[in-house]
Design a protein around this nucleic acid. Structure first.
Lengths: 215, 215, 215, 215
DNA sequence: TATGAATGAGGATTCATTCAT
DNA sequence: CATGAATGAATCCTCATTCAT
């Protein structure tokens, strides 16, 4: 169970740091930052790019942030919060076997993509640029997600549904890398929906983790 | 068949740009650049870091390059060359069925990792920063690799070894994302070898692509 | 007639490049740049010299420009605009004979010198360093001035006031070289005024172009 | 009279600074330097450009020079030496009136152009970049030339051949500026020869300096 | 004489950040 | 809240110059 985190605040972007603030504007800014980070990468992204996209001057942005890194952090937290929210299972699923649970997780995860700005996950590669404390905070969230999946993998092995030679850590990493890689190439063109992609991932992973067919 | 490229030149790092140059030094530089890019990312990497690692002054580096981007390009080409070299199959494999071929490919791919500087693939994320022409050149190499895998996936579908609902493009992307993700987390600690990891990928993919078990 | 250009904008220095900008500061900068270019030449001039002269830091200069070359261009345009403004004749002059017209032109030209920063013309030698497009723009302005003078020379030849063996192009070049050379050595020390110098040039040219005395 | 200088050494380029030297190579270098300075200006000219044009590496150039400035100086001295050599008059001319003498001087000056690399005079604008001593040396040569012409102008005024209101300094400057300006635009295309150009200058100056026609 | 390699002091440019208005 | 202007540290790149071989 991963219900120790407050589901209320989790899907919500972190509150803007300063006093009385235009909440809508703060979201605009996060959106803009997300887009620009996605396009150029965090380091190459310029504060000015973000400000321009919002329609304000770069100096004005500093009414909302203290540091460029604030944006990276806010985005990271937002992205990971969405991820964490995904870990919540209903009672039926929680009681199910590992293949079912992992499949359900993938479905829930993919389902968040259309409604969540995809760039949220892109910050992934730039976590190392956060200050120690913030990085630790983000890593902690990431860790929770990994633990959740890892537990399911271990359950699957114990149950005999997954190959006993599977290294749970490796499997977990692979699952997340696969899911996260989506944002690097997937553009929902209509030809392929998130659902279809999710179904593909589900089969690939569940079936791929099964024990070697003995026949 | 992917034998249209010269296997001679493929695994070799790109020749140093200028006339008569110290080849060894050029390799030192590429190595250093690879390490620094890996650690900090291309943009954050400072020319000075690279020079220092080689043991020369930053100005001296410009005896070997024209632009920082040259290093990124050289590294990209080197990495992709290694990848392309991987596409070469022996006759037996070429005649085999898709699961065997894709498995063999994954084995060959993973086998290059210990002997090739892992950073070679890390440049992946920074290709967009290359000049148009160079990016095109790199994309072309990348494309060749994708085509090779995609063809095998299509073959597998045609043979009935792979799920007929599989989108070959998606499958191909997933395979490469998975393989490339390795460098983002894998540290050969002894607990897990490249071979073992390769075996895991192989089973995950081959078995994961199989048609839904009907029974 | 050379009235196709807007006499309003002509003597005005080019507008500062960015949106809402401190116009006064922009002029200070152009002035400073002009002085430094004059003293050291464009290439040897350091952005820092210019900034210091304005009393700001070199980084701050980039709030106003994109490139050092912008300053050269702005100065070139300013100088040539002043020159073009000089081509405007009143009706009486326009109807006069060539010696009168060329004399009037020289007078008008020299008259602008005291009121216009002399460095404006110094950029002359560095036009080649402009980007192709900008160089073309400046050359076009220069060309208009040459055409104006050349036409008068041709008129003078046709009228019989100027030596029929005169090559109009050569004469035009010589006239401009002579006028422009002023800034290379002339310092208004009081001993010699611009007027006096203008009178000298006028006589030298008008009388020098006359047909060989036959007597 | 300006015969105090050794006419032997004067037209000759300054001897190369170091020990046993390949004289021919030294001339090649000066030629190359002249061309490059002409094309790019002294400051923008790179030692490497010059070396490349000679066909050696830039490091090798330092066998012949100590400093880039050496090249500028050598070229300046060469150019001014050619100019000084031009001041030598035959007895008949020396006894003639000012218009004749100035005309003869212009003819002699222009006559050197085809045989002397034109870039020699282009260094003109960069004299200020020489070290104090060298600049003084060059200025001294320049001064000798100016004095020579100035004396003739003064003679002309005294004789009544030139306008008594003429400022001899201004006239001298103008004459040299005019002659030197040639290299900035003149390309011997055949349409116009050096002779013809010389004739034009001669008439322009001699006739232009005459007293105002009173009749 | 010539070369290849390195040096190191600049100099242009970028950009996160500050702050008075 | 927003702006315009400035800051200053960082970083890329240039190039005259040196020197062992």
């Amino acid at each position: 169970m991963v219900t120790q985190h407050d589901p209320e605040s989790i899907t919500v972007a972190p509150a803007p740091p300063k006093g009385t603030l235009n909440g809508a504007r703060w979201h605009e800014i996060l959106d803009a930052a997300g887009e620009v980070f996605q396009e150029k990468g965090y380091q190459a992204a310029r504060i000015e790019d973000i400000a321009n996209r919002v329609g304000i001057l770069k100096g004005s942005l500093y009414y909302y942030i203290e540091t460029k890194e604030d944006l990276l952090y806010a985005l990271s937290v937002a992205g990971h919060s969405t991820g964490l929210a995904t870990l919540d299972e209903d009672d039926a699923t929680r009681a199910a076997d590992a293949p079912a649970r992992i499949g359900a997780f993938i479905e829930r995860w993919m389902a968040t993509i259309p409604s969540t700005p995809q760039y949220a996950r892109v910050t992934e590669r730039d976590v190392r640029l956060l200050t120690d404390q913030r990085r630790a905070a983000v890593m902690e969230m990431r860790n929770q997600m990994h633990q959740y999946v890892r537990k399911i993998v271990e359950q699957g092995i114990a149950e005999g549904h997954f190959d006993p030679t599977t290294d749970p850590g490796v499997a977990t990493n692979s699952i997340f890398e696969l899911l996260n890689s989506t944002s690097r190439w997937f553009r929902p063109t209509g030809r392929l929906s998130h659902d279809a992609l999710g179904a593909f991932y589900k089969k690939l992973i569940v079936q791929g983790l099964r024990p070697e067919a003995t026949s």
